[in-house]
Lab assay of single mutants.
Amino acid sequence: MIQEPALPPGWEMKYTSEGVRYFVDHNTRTTTFKDPRPGFESGTKQGSPGAYDR
Score class of each variant (00 low, 15 high):
residue 4 E to D: 10
residue 51 A to E: 14
residue 50 G to C: 10
residue 8 P to H: 03
residue 37 R to V: 04
residue 35 D to F: 03
residue 30 T to V: 07
residue 22 Y to C: 02
residue 48 S to G: 12
residue 23 F to R: 00
residue 15 Y to N: 08
residue 8 P to L: 05
residue 39 G to S: 14
residue 52 Y to D: 15
residue 23 F to S: 00
residue 45 K to E: 11
residue 11 W to M: 03
residue 43 G to A: 11
residue 36 P to A: 00
residue 52 Y to P: 13
residue 12 E to M: 08
residue 19 G to K: 11
residue 21 R to C: 04
residue 54 R to D: 15
residue 16 T to N: 07
residue 24 V to L: 11
residue 37 R to P: 06
residue 20 V to N: 12
residue 3 Q to V: 15
residue 14 K to N: 04
residue 15 Y to F: 09
residue 12 E to T: 05
residue 53 D to N: 08
residue 32 T to W: 02
residue 46 Q to E: 11
residue 24 V to H: 03
residue 39 G to F: 12
residue 6 A to I: 12
residue 25 D to I: 00
residue 41 E to S: 07
residue 26 H to S: 05
residue 22 Y to D: 00
residue 44 T to P: 10
residue 36 P to W: 00
residue 25 D to K: 00
residue 10 G to H: 04
residue 7 L to I: 05
residue 33 F to K: 03
residue 3 Q to E: 15
residue 45 K to C: 11
residue 47 G to I: 12
residue 20 V to K: 09
residue 33 F to S: 03
residue 51 A to N: 06
residue 22 Y to T: 02
residue 19 G to V: 00
residue 20 V to W: 06
residue 41 E to I: 11
residue 53 D to V: 07
residue 53 D to M: 13
residue 33 F to V: 03
residue 45 K to P: 10
residue 35 D to V: 03
residue 49 P to F: 08
residue 45 K to W: 09
residue 18 E to A: 09
residue 23 F to P: 01
residue 29 R to W: 04
residue 24 V to C: 04
residue 15 Y to I: 10
residue 30 T to M: 09
residue 34 K to V: 15
residue 3 Q to A: 10
residue 18 E to P: 02
residue 25 D to T: 00
residue 42 S to D: 13
residue 11 W to K: 01
residue 20 V to S: 09
residue 41 E to G: 11
residue 49 P to Y: 10
residue 50 G to M: 11
residue 11 W to F: 12
residue 43 G to P: 12
residue 29 R to T: 04
residue 18 E to D: 10
residue 42 S to M: 10
residue 5 P to D: 15
residue 26 H to L: 04
residue 6 A to S: 14
residue 6 A to C: 15
residue 36 P to N: 00
residue 45 K to L: 10
residue 54 R to V: 10
residue 54 R to C: 03
residue 54 R to W: 12
residue 10 G to P: 00
residue 24 V to W: 03
residue 50 G to N: 13
residue 43 G to C: 07
residue 53 D to E: 14
residue 32 T to K: 01
residue 8 P to S: 04
residue 16 T to L: 05
residue 7 L to E: 01
residue 41 E to Q: 10
residue 3 Q to W: 08
residue 15 Y to D: 02
residue 26 H to C: 03
residue 48 S to T: 15
residue 3 Q to K: 15
residue 32 T to Q: 04
residue 36 P to L: 00
residue 35 D to M: 05
residue 1 M to R: 09
residue 30 T to H: 05
residue 30 T to Y: 04
residue 42 S to N: 10
residue 17 S to N: 14
residue 27 N to K: 06
residue 4 E to A: 10
residue 40 F to I: 09
residue 54 R to T: 13
residue 47 G to T: 13
residue 39 G to V: 10
residue 44 T to I: 10
residue 24 V to Y: 05
residue 12 E to F: 01
residue 38 P to L: 11
residue 29 R to M: 08
residue 39 G to W: 12
residue 40 F to C: 10
residue 27 N to Y: 03
residue 45 K to T: 12
residue 25 D to P: 00
residue 10 G to Y: 06
residue 46 Q to M: 11
residue 22 Y to M: 03
residue 48 S to I: 11
residue 16 T to R: 01
residue 39 G to H: 11
residue 51 A to L: 11
residue 10 G to Q: 08
residue 44 T to H: 07
residue 1 M to T: 08
residue 49 P to V: 11
residue 42 S to Q: 12
residue 44 T to D: 11
residue 33 F to D: 04
residue 14 K to H: 08
residue 51 A to H: 04
residue 5 P to W: 10
residue 7 L to M: 10
residue 35 D to K: 02
residue 5 P to F: 15
residue 52 Y to N: 05
residue 38 P to C: 09
residue 25 D to F: 00
residue 22 Y to V: 02
residue 40 F to L: 10
residue 34 K to H: 09
residue 27 N to L: 05
residue 31 T to A: 04
residue 48 S to K: 14
residue 7 L to K: 01
residue 46 Q to Y: 08
residue 10 G to C: 01
residue 28 T to I: 03
residue 36 P to V: 01
residue 51 A to G: 13
residue 41 E to F: 05
residue 22 Y to Q: 01
residue 48 S to F: 08
residue 12 E to L: 03
residue 50 G to L: 11
residue 9 P to T: 13
residue 42 S to C: 10
residue 23 F to D: 01
residue 52 Y to W: 08
residue 54 R to N: 01
residue 5 P to Q: 15
residue 7 L to S: 01
residue 6 A to Q: 14
residue 15 Y to G: 02
residue 36 P to T: 00
residue 20 V to E: 15
residue 24 V to F: 04
residue 54 R to L: 09
residue 50 G to W: 07
residue 15 Y to E: 11
residue 48 S to M: 12
residue 32 T to N: 01
residue 31 T to L: 02
residue 49 P to N: 14
residue 15 Y to R: 12
residue 49 P to C: 11
residue 11 W to R: 01
residue 36 P to E: 01
residue 52 Y to G: 14
residue 46 Q to H: 11
residue 27 N to R: 07
residue 3 Q to M: 14
residue 40 F to A: 14
residue 1 M to E: 09
residue 4 E to R: 06
residue 38 P to S: 12
residue 49 P to T: 11
residue 3 Q to F: 15
residue 53 D to H: 15
residue 8 P to Y: 02
residue 13 M to D: 08
residue 40 F to N: 05
residue 27 N to T: 05
residue 51 A to W: 06
residue 13 M to S: 10
residue 42 S to L: 09
residue 38 P to M: 12
residue 33 F to H: 04
residue 19 G to L: 04
residue 4 E to K: 10
residue 43 G to F: 08
residue 18 E to L: 06
residue 35 D to Y: 05
residue 9 P to R: 11
residue 10 G to V: 01
residue 6 A to W: 09
residue 32 T to S: 08
residue 42 S to I: 11
residue 8 P to T: 02
residue 31 T to Q: 03
residue 34 K to F: 15
residue 48 S to R: 13
residue 7 L to Y: 10
residue 7 L to G: 02
residue 44 T to Y: 08
residue 50 G to R: 11
residue 39 G to M: 09
residue 11 W to Y: 05
residue 26 H to A: 03
residue 39 G to Q: 14
residue 28 T to A: 09
residue 25 D to L: 00
residue 44 T to V: 12
residue 13 M to C: 13
residue 4 E to V: 09
residue 54 R to E: 10
residue 33 F to W: 08
residue 52 Y to E: 14
residue 28 T to S: 08
residue 31 T to G: 01
residue 9 P to G: 11
residue 32 T to G: 01
residue 11 W to Q: 02
residue 34 K to P: 00
residue 46 Q to W: 07
